[in-house]
Structures are given as structure tokens and as C-alpha cells.
Design a protein around this nucleic acid. Structure first.
Length: 265
DNA sequence: CTATAGACCTGACGGC
DNA sequence: TGCCGTCAGGTCTATA
């Protein structure tokens, strides 16, 4: 499902379409997607901004009204000028004055929160890697407090918000760090490499339009391209792009984890 | 506090 | 063709 780069691309695409435009009508096909608030309270309101915090999408509307969304495994927002070719698995439709915003979600794990004058739906979301306060020193402090395997630590949204299962494996490969290494045993040079890898991998993935597996679609209905550049994720048994040794797959915290035993120590 | 398994869902794929 | 098990980009909750 969407991780930081995919969510960032969705926000960028939607910003051009929805900001400054009014929601005329909302159609809810699957009510349990709405986790809190009154969905109809957004009707007649204008979107004033859209941005991202970790993997959450934050839609800002007039009158201090916020709509938040988390896409979980299979959610996405699609933009259509009209519904002549309606996609499947549409759970919520937002009719704007200039087109239609669709919330699509196959497995229906995602959610939408409508919040008026209140706090966001998350509690204790970790630092976003693109926040200027995300520094090597800060990362060292975060990881120094955990003894769990570093792969699980960087997946923990309470520490860093945005990395998911694909990019966690990719980042550790780029940093040359073994996923099972205890988080608090990392030395300063490794933390620095890890910080650098997080920024490089995420930035590159964002520019590539994110990663597309199965039928994930960006808001323009298209796929990302980063799957072509993955170095370890879902490449078990295939040769490491650096040393040629077959990529290993293990299960860590019930999540598939991929790495090269030679390049990651 | 940690660590683990299960739950929430739908669909694609491989094996028999 | 069909049935069954496994797996999937995430996160929350219950249990030991």
C-alpha cells in the first residue's frame, strides 16, 4: 500500500485539481470508511490546501474544517473530470465544481476523519523525514532508545512517520545495514548512512512517482515507476545488483524483509 | 514495558 | 474449471 512517496505524489496531483474548488455533493458507498465526524458537513465548502504528515493526507477546508485520510493497504484518491469510465471499488465520491474526487479502496482498511476545530486523528505520530528537524542527531536519539531490530524500529510510525515495508528494506540496503541489527547498537557512521539513505531513497522514489504493485493507481490513474529500481524488495533469490549474491527473504514482525547478506552487515 | 499473534478485508496467484 | 492455501505497500488490539 501507499507509503510516503506514493502519498506525496497523490497530494501533489490533487493539489492542482482541488485547491480553490468547492465540494457540491458527497456520496458514501461504504459508511465504515468514515471513522469520525459528519461527512456531509464538507458539502458547500472549498478546499484551501492539501498536504501530508507521514502517510496521512490532510485536506484543509474553509471554516477550520479538516478532512484526514489514511490509505492503509489499498486506498487511493483518483481524480476524474467526469465518470464516463468509473473505476471499481469506489467507496466515497466527492463531486466538486470542476470534477470528481474518488476514494478507491479494495481491501477497505483505509479511513477518513472529518474534524472540526479539533486535533488530528493520530496520536504521537513520529517525525516526518522531510521535516527540517529530522537530523542525524535526532535519528540517533530515536534509535538509541530501542533495542528491537532496526528494520522494525524504522517501520514504527511513532518514531519516523512515512516509511513502510518496501522502503524500510530499500533504505537498509542502501545504507549497508543488516535489518536484524539491534537498533541501539548502531554506531554514529551507520546512523549517518541510514539518515542519508532515507532521504535519498524517498526523494528518488517521489520523483519516480512512487512504487506500483498490483493495481495501485496514482491520482491520475497511472502507475509509478520506482518498482523498476527496487534493489531488494520482492527480489528474493535474484542476484544483488551490487555483488550478485542472491537476495534473502526473512519474516520479521510478520512482515517480509529483504536484504543482501554480503552488502548488509 | 516488550514481543507476538490475530483481526480487519478483497483479490490474485500457484498447486493439485 | 474449481477449490484451497498463501500472500499483499498498514495499523490496532488482545494476550502472555
Amino acid at each position: 500500500m501507499p507509503e510516503l512517496p506514493e502519498v506525496e505524489n497523490i497530494c501533489r496531483m490533487l493539489r492542482e485539481k482541488i485547491v480553490g474548488h468547492v465540494i457540491n455533493k458527497t456520496l458514501v458507498h461504504l459508511p465504515r470508511i468514515i471513522r469520525s465526524g459528519d461527512i456531509n458537513s464538507i458539502n458547500g465548502r472549498k478546499f484551501t490546501d492539501i498536504y501530508r504528515r507521514g502517510k496521512y493526507i490532510c485536506f484543509e477546508l474553509e471554516n477550520d474544517l479538516m478532512m484526514y485520510s489514511h490509505l492503509r493497504m489499498t486506498g487511493t484518491f483518483l481524480w476524474k473530470n467526469d465518470l464516463s469510465e468509473a473505476p471499481t471499488h469506489i467507496r466515497i465520491e466527492f463531486e466538486l465544481d470542476n470534477g470528481v474526487l474518488l476514494y478507491r479502496d479494495i481491501r477497505t482498511f483505509g479511513g477518513i476523519w472529518i474534524i472540526k476545530d479539533g486535533s488530528p486523528p493520530w496520536k504521537e505520530l513520529g517525525i516526518d523525514p522531510f521535516d527540517s528537524e529530522f537530523t542525524v542527531k535526532g535519528l540517533r536519539t530515536l534509535l538509541g532508545n530501542r533495542k528491537q531490530p532496526v528494520k522494525q524500529a524504522i517501520l514504527d510510525q511513532h518514531l519516523i512517520a512515512g516509511l513502510g515495508n518496501i522502503y524500510a528494506s530499500e533504505v537498509l540496503f542502501t545504507a549497508g545495514i543488516h535489518p536484524l541489527i539491534s537498533s541501539n547498537s548502531l554506531e554514529k557512521p551507520e546512523i549517518k548512512r541510514l539518515h542519508n539513505a532515507i532521504m535519498t531513497v524517498l526523494s528518488t522514489a517521489i520523483e519516480a512517482g512512487g512504487t506500483t504493485f498490483r493495481d495501485f493507481q496514482l491520482s491520475n490513474g497511472k502507475s509509478g515507476a520506482f518498482q523498476e529500481f527496487l534493489k531488494v524488495y520482492a527480489r528474493n533469490g535474484k542476484p544483488c545488483r551490487i555483488c550478485g549474491k542472491p537476495i534473502e527473504k526473512i519474516v520479521l514482525g510478520q512482515r517480509s524483509t529483504y536484504f543482501c547478506t554480503k552488502c548488509q552487515k
